[in-house]
């Protein structure tokens, strides 16, 4: 597991596509550092011989048959969109 001091706030902000002021950076670096230090306590647990898993229960193959069900109307789908046009969600221009 990476150490809290390896945490790179600029990198994470860049991946999340958010701009942070110097003041915000200082505040978040300190807050996130605390969180990471707290979580890092898990490193002290002896997990020798424990299979890594993302789940606490040994349940597998949870699925549904391929039968379509009614979805949302266009109106409902777009209801929370801050901006819409031609029945689509408007987002800032993405240059490909």
């Amino acid at each position: 597991m990476p150490k809290p001091e390896d945490f790179n706030l600029d990198h994470v902000a860049n991946l999340a596509r958010i701009n942070l002021t110097e003041e915000e950076k200082a505040r978040f670096a300190s807050q996130l550092g605390d969180v990471l230090t707290y979580i890092a306590q898990l490193n002290e647990v002896n997990v020798e011989g424990v299979e890594p898993t993302a789940h606490a229960f040994p349940v597998v193959n949870v699925w549904a048959e391929d039968v379509p069900e009614a979805g949302l109307s266009v109106e409902d789908a777009l209801r929370n969109a801050p901006e819409k046009r031609d029945n689509m969600f408007v987002v800032p221009k993405v240059v490909e």
Binding site: E83, R85, D86, M88, F89, V90, V91, P92, K93, V94, V95, E96
Partner: peptide, 8 residues
């Protein structure tokens, strides 16, 4: 990609 915006 439209004028000044992208539509999803």
């Amino acid at each position: 990609h439209g004028d000044g915006a992208s539509l999803v």
